[in-house]
Amino acid sequence: MKSQYKDFLIRDWQIKDRTVAAELIHSVLSEYGLGWEPKGADRDVLQVEECYLHNGGEFWVIEHQKELVGTAAYYPIKRGKNSVEIRKMYLLPQARGCGLGKYLLQQLEAAIISRGFEEIWIETASILAEAVKLYEGYGYKPAAGVETERCDRVYLKSFNSIY
Score class of each variant (00 low, 15 high):
Q107K: 09
E67L: 04
S114Y: 01
K102L: 14
H54Q: 15
M89D: 06
I162F: 13
K6M: 09
A143Q: 08
E136Y: 12
P93Y: 05
A73L: 04
K141M: 15
N82E: 10
N55A: 14
S158F: 02
M1Q: 11
R11K: 05
R153W: 03
D12N: 13
L104R: 03
V45D: 00
T124R: 01
I10P: 05
A144Y: 11
I86C: 09
G33W: 12
E130G: 03
P38A: 10
L53A: 04
W60R: 02
V69W: 00
E130I: 02
E85D: 11
E85L: 07
T148V: 15
C151G: 12
S126K: 06
G35A: 14
Y32N: 01
S114T: 08
S158E: 12
K78E: 12
R153V: 09
G99T: 10
K141L: 14
G35L: 15
H64E: 10
E63N: 03
I162H: 13
P93S: 07
Y163H: 12
Y140K: 09
L92T: 06
R18S: 07
L104W: 00
K88M: 05
G99M: 08
I15C: 15
K16C: 05
L128R: 06
K39S: 13
G99P: 08
L128T: 06
L24S: 00
V69Y: 00
C98R: 10
E130V: 02
A41E: 05
T124P: 06
E109H: 06
I122W: 01
L92C: 05
S158L: 04
R115M: 09
G57Q: 02
A73D: 00
K81P: 07
L46I: 04
A125L: 03
L134M: 05
Q4G: 11
I127R: 08
F117Q: 01
W121V: 08
K78G: 14
I113L: 12
A131I: 08
Y135G: 09
H54M: 15
Y103H: 11
E130R: 07
Q47V: 02
L100H: 10
G101N: 07
E119N: 11
G40A: 15
K6Y: 09
I113T: 06
R43Q: 12
M1T: 14
A22V: 01
R87Q: 14
A125I: 03
A110Y: 02
I86Q: 04
W121K: 04
K39N: 15
V84N: 01
V45M: 07
E67M: 09
V45C: 07
Q47T: 06
R11G: 02
K157L: 07
E147N: 12
A131L: 09
K88Q: 06
G33M: 14
H26M: 14
R11T: 05
K141E: 15
G80W: 08
